[in-house]
Nucleic acid binder design. Structure first.
Lengths: 344, 344
DNA sequence: CTGAAAGCGCTTACAG
DNA sequence: CTGAAAGCGCTTACAG
């Protein structure tokens, strides 16, 4: 009577050589057949696959990483999880990568370049197969780390400005143009004294600021006193505070462009509380079209940003790079959309 | 003249034996000294450490995982990233784990037990050192997988009810009691016809529902028609829709307990739009105290839930379990707080 | 197209 | 307290 096959392994794990035995081939052939490397006879591939599924074989990621010097991890560095924007980006990227057989390792930089560098250092130890990173303002050491590691990398969310030298691979939209476009939208609706209220002041917010500035300068309406910058984190609460400040100190203002929707939502609620008419007295606009903006009273004019698409396309580009296929375009512009609602 | 030491490794990586050479000991001694395993002479430890930092040695996680059958990854499974609640939980847990030297691998289940099982299967292949998981409603196979893997595991967010057999290790608060407590708060403020509006209908929402039910039953005010359950995802938009529905169909209602703050915020904005007075005509309460709830008009009465503390304490408990130290308490109750504001 | 050998960089028993 | 040997489970060249 045949007894069930004895496992000699201490770990009890089904290994490559177990499959090789069962299929009557060498381990290396199993390895090749399973990875879909060409140069294996179709008949053998079939036998290997049958044995593999029959035994319930699953490759060991650690062994694979050690032997190949490459893991199936992709590291993704984002500034903050509390901004819905990055959650959407992450969710989309993760889904695409997972479908491609990769695990995602998330690092949260808290908008701090030093922390980003530290995280990068840690992540790189795991020999990630690829890297997704927000923006391209990194410390010099971080840049060196990335280059030396040779790990394929895609930068997300912003694009190099005209003539600027950007990273090799990126997916995003022009934060600068989006800032300018929203400002022009307000100008077209007859606004003349348009303030810019920025928080966090990360590189992308600064690009929006520059866009706003150039649009106002073109119209001959720029004034430094229209700039309200606060390095604190963007939040509903801060938006309310900034709104009161701006309205209190510069009553002549007829529109405010908040660099993120949470600020604008806070401003809208503050206006409601203070009885300041929006848009009659002052127009309010935000950025990103976050959840809730369409339900505000009045509904918020904003810029819809394609963060989910950026996540998907960025991950897709990285997948190609990891396979050694250079993508068709090295930088992809996914654009943006002005969403005119009742607050302007 | 001494030439710089030649690296024989193809990979160019500084390895354990490089350090061993430099320190004049065997590789295994380096391994032991660096991991702080006792039974190494202090003098050797010092020499090893000096050589290690001088050469810039960093252990290879893949090799370590392969040899020890244990990685330095901790898997964390949460239902959804788009609910701020879980982002707070994750952020806190991640921070604690990182300080303990562990990388976090995130799995998003989308409130789907089958997806959870699939993720668990994938994660377990990486031999995580530990597991953090939301709730304890899992498929039978998922439970088996967890048990057989022997991976230390802490369940987050809910506690077993009185007399119920829960998981071995958990950190959370009683969703049931929180639901009952908020309902009693509304009763104390004189409300008699208190509806429950639930979305998503995950296990924790159901516990809140049961808590609401028992509080109303105690007061002799329970009626099945007060229950409004919708399996769709919780959102501001859904809250607005449910509010209109409830007010349209059951005008006698004088309070609504929404199972999550985003629903309640949507309801508040809908009330503003429709000109329905809150709390004069109807009181509104939410759950979780999410960002923005304190800025609503009127500000939202809700339950503040200690998700960040749950993340920290859960990760701390897991850290202890991974070190082989059984935690003092197997289940930790972190409580909750009723936040009475102007909407009730 | 297939395989035997060597190696990835560490740790786990097993000796002493 | 220290070390030589073996092994974790795969893949990378190198042959044929």
């Amino acid at each position: 009577m045949p007894t069930p096959t004895k496992r000699l392994r201490a770990t009890g794990r089904v290994t490559l050589s177990d499959v090789a035995h069962a299929a009557g081939v060498s381990p290396i052939t199993v390895s090749r057949a399973l990875r879909g490397e060409r140069a294996v006879a179709p008949e053998l591939v079939a036998r290997v696959q049958e044995a593999s599924t029959r035994l319930g074989y699953v490759p060991d990621p650690a062994a694979r990483a050690l032997a190949s010097q490459r893991s199936n991890h992709v590291a993704i560095l984002i500034p903050k999880l509390s901004n819905t924007l990055f959650v959407d980006l992450l969710d989309a990227a993760q889904q695409t990568l997972r479908a491609g057989g990769f695990q995602t390792l998330i690092g949260v930089t808290h908008y701090d370049e030093a922390q980003e560098e530290q995280l990068l250092r840690e992540q790189l130890l795991h020999r990630p197969a690829g890297l997704l990173i927000t923006g391209w303002n990194h410390t010099a050491s971080a840049r060196t780390l990335m280059e030396r590691s040779q790990v394929p990398c895609v930068h997300l969310m912003d694009l190099p400005r005209q003539g600027e030298v950007g990273p090799a691979h990126c997916v995003g939209f022009s934060q600068n143009e989006a800032g300018a476009a929203l400002t022009r939208h307000l100008l077209e609706r007859g606004r003349r004294r348009i303030a810019f209220a920025g928080a966090q002041l990360d590189p992308r917010v600064m690009q929006r600021l520059y866009g706003w500035r150039s649009a106002l300068q073109e119209a001959g309406l720029y004034e430094p006193t229209l700039e309200w910058l606060n390095p604190a984190s963007s939040s509903l609460a801060l938006g309310a505070v900034m709104f009161e400040q701006i309205m209190g100190q510069t009553p002549a203002i007829d529109a405010i462009f908040f660099c993120n929707d949470d600020l604008a939502q806070g401003a809208l609620l503050a206006a409601l509380r203070l009885g300041i008419q929006v848009p009659a007295r002052v127009a309010i606009a935000g950025f990103n079209d976050l959840p809730g903006s369409d339900h505000m009273l009045p509904s918020l004019t904003t810029v819809r940003t394609p963060r989910a698409q950026i996540g998907t396309a960025g991950a897709g580009m990285l997948l190609a790079l990891m396979r050694g296929q250079p993508p068709e375009q090295s930088c992809v512009d996914l654009g943006f959309e002005i969403v005119g609602r009742h607050s302007s």
